[in-house]
């Protein structure tokens, strides 16, 4: 894991989001379902997801009107270790 990703992941809210994401079916989720799961405001969740996407931790896939987030497969095992 590169330094930038490591720094980004060293944050409680983002670790929680990653753990929620990995608990979803097929390990994918939308902003809506993550917002519900973590109990924070949607702009806050979007902000954290964007940061993790920029750091290469998350991949995003627009589908229709929704955007689905998933963990970058190259880093999945490392991240699973961190949130288990």
């Amino acid at each position: 894991m590169l330094a930038r990703s490591l720094k980004v992941v060293a944050n409680a809210t983002r670790l929680q989001l990653l753990s929620l994401l990995l608990a979803e079916p097929e390990e994918r989720a939308t902003v809506g379902s993550l917002t519900e799961g973590i109990g924070l405001r949607q702009p806050t969740v979007t902000h954290h997801l964007n940061l993790m996407h920029e750091a290469g931790l998350l991949e995003r896939e627009p589908r229709g009107r929704q955007v689905w987030y998933s963990v970058n497969p190259d880093m999945r095992d490392t991240i699973v270790d961190l949130v288990q």
């Binding site: 409680a12 929680q16 753990s19």
Partner: peptide, 13 residues
């Protein structure tokens, strides 16, 4: 498993 709770997430961060 159940997702990380706030206290545990803080400890790991």
């Amino acid at each position: 498993g159940p997702p990380l709770d706030v206290a545990e997430a803080r400890r790991r961060a």
